[in-house]
Design a protein around this nucleic acid. Structure first.
Lengths: 239, 239
DNA sequence: CGACACCTTGAAGAGGTTCAAGAAATGTGG
DNA sequence: CCACATTTCTTGAACCTCTTCAAGGTGTCG
């Protein structure tokens, strides 16, 4: 494709708190600026990397929204996550030096390309960065545990409620509304992530609307009653 | 409890190929021997660590068999994995300096305790170890992607077949039979891992027996027709 | 404006769960 | 070492949730 590229620095990036370790001194920051080789733009619908491609870099999302998905040999497809600004994609590629999933932009996006060899060598010099890397990978493992709980033990309503709450929470952490969001993905993609068919996702949205807990107009969702959603996810625990 | 402890060295451990990076020189090996602080025995049914406990160390399993599980606030329980000799547990604890799951021994076990601070400082000196750590975490992420595919898109028979094939494959890599295995976990634990009820697991075993693809006598399983199981997991792809 | 992708809703059907009972294995204490 | 209690496993029948199939509606983009 056309890897439209721009040279940049982390040290004065407004997403630094999301991507980078805190409390670095000026010296370390200068080193870390070398971590990002270039930026790369990815058009909506295009892929950042694909299953089978050689792994060279991790990617920090600057703008835009991605999905990652894997395909079984017989063509079934599973969305493994949705990623937004400040989040890292590509960790799957480290084990075997090639990517095992696809990362596709769901809206025009820009990412910081961080060659993994840079990251490893810098990590040896900057303990804070090393620890940060470990935390990021551990965080991803823990996130996936949560998805396993969702897929393994929750019913459709619980899954969708948990999904919505998780999305707004992450958006809110980025300065967006606590109650309004625009879905960047189709019902089918939501369904794939949640282990449901798109019709079930649609019906469950309709049910939430009937109950008065959310308003839905296509991709635009407004959460009316957050607690109601919380109660759905967590029948007992919450009040 | 009683952390019955013995001092030991990785350099002459027979599981080294499973836990440790390959191709280390004598010098590095000597350093790495310092990584394992002590060994610890865990009795069947006892836990190695529990959700909420402070994270200090990763654990390499020397002998025995573990399950890891998380609990939702309302008491639901999800088994997130089964671990055997040479595998590492505890990665979940790195993000927040405390464990987010329980690790319980399903048979008497012994683990190597590797204080995470040792690992991090050694990693800075031994690039091969650093890269090994990254690979291990990435491998765990990729494994969980596979579980998500299983939970999100497979039917009961496919899940159980995939589970059995995965287990024998790992056991075989450790010198055990390709076709016979003893399940260390209950039907309920299998069900929890696979997102099924224990009755469904039992029924599905019975179906496999009827079909002549496996023999089952309680926890003892003999796989008669591996290809049949493969075809179940992968309807199209395989011949 | 027309074509296409996406979403909603209904009705029928399948797969898995729930509830229940009994059998088999395992562990414990006398 | 045996008897009993407990846990684990199997199987049946009714039920329920989600899926499948189908049709029509809505939105979007060239």
């Amino acid at each position: 494709m056309n890897p439209q590229s721009i040279k940049v620095a982390c040290s004065n990036c407004n997403l630094r708190e999301l991507c980078m370790p805190l409390g670095l001194n000026a010296e370390d920051l200068e080193l870390i600026d070398r971590m990002v080789a270039v930026r790369r733009k990815v058009k909506r619908g295009a892929s950042l990397f694909r299953n089978g491609e050689v792994f060279t870099s991790l990617y920090a999302i600057r703008t835009g929204f991605f999905k990652t998905s894997i395909a079984s040999e017989d063509g079934r497809d599973q969305v493994t996550g949705f990623q937004m600004a400040g989040e890292i994609v590509g960790l799957d590629g480290i084990v075997n030096d090639q990517h095992t999933c696809d990362a596709v932009a769901l809206e025009d996006a820009e990412v910081c390309v961080m060659p993994f060899e840079h990251i490893e060598s810098l990590s040896r010099e900057v303990p804070a960065l090393q620890h940060h890397m470990h935390k990021m990978m551990s965080r991803e493992i823990v996130r996936e545990h949560g998805v396993m709980l969702l897929l393994g033990s929750m019913r459709a309503e619980e899954r969708l409620a948990a999904f919505l709450l998780n999305l707004v929470q992450r958006l809110h952490a980025r300065g967006f509304s606590q109650s309004e969001l625009i879905l960047r993905m189709t019902r089918e993609e939501i369904g794939s992530y949640l282990g449901l068919k798109l019709e079930t996702v649609s019906r469950t949205f309709s049910k939430f609307v009937e109950d008065g807990s959310v308003e839905v107009k296509q991709r635009h969702v407004r959460i009316i009653d957050t607690d109601a959603l919380r109660r759905i996810v967590n029948p007992q625990a919450l009040l």
